[in-house]
Computed example of a mutant assay.
Amino acid sequence: MKQTDFVEVKQMQVKCVLCDQIEDIDDDALQAKRLRNRKLNMYLCTPCNERIAKNTKKRHKSGNFHLFKEKKDTNDYL
């Protein structure tokens, strides 16, 4: 008798924050690790991510997109 080794691939269920679509991603994936360790990270499904990226690039090209950097006070004593 041959003994075959079965590798169990664990899946993590994630929900898109925009469209509430539930997807399975590989538990060992970098994105799954980031979602587990950093609770403030949000998951976006592929269609939502592509839509936001396309609209952002369109705003960059139009010139109406401004990133406001946080003003930090410098302390001369530190």
Rank of each mutant, 00 (worst) to 15 (best):
E8K: 10
M12K: 05
K15C: 12
C16T: 08
V17Q: 05
L18C: 02
C19Q: 04
C19K: 09
C19W: 09
D20E: 13
Q21F: 07
I22H: 07
I22M: 07
E23L: 05
D24C: 03
D28N: 15
D28F: 15
D28Y: 10
D28A: 15
A29Y: 09
A32E: 00
A32L: 05
L35E: 06
N37G: 07
R38F: 12
L40I: 10
L40Q: 12
N41C: 01
N41W: 02
Y43W: 06
Y43R: 05
C45K: 15
C45F: 15
T46L: 04
P47V: 11
C48V: 01
C48I: 00
N49D: 10
E50D: 15
I52K: 02
K54R: 13
K54G: 13
N55K: 01
N55T: 03
T56L: 11
T56C: 04
K57Y: 02
K58Q: 11
R59Y: 03
K61I: 04
G63F: 02
G63K: 01
F65A: 01
F65Q: 03
F65C: 01
H66S: 13
E70C: 06
K71C: 11
K72N: 07
K72W: 05
T74D: 09
D76G: 04
D76A: 14
Y77R: 03
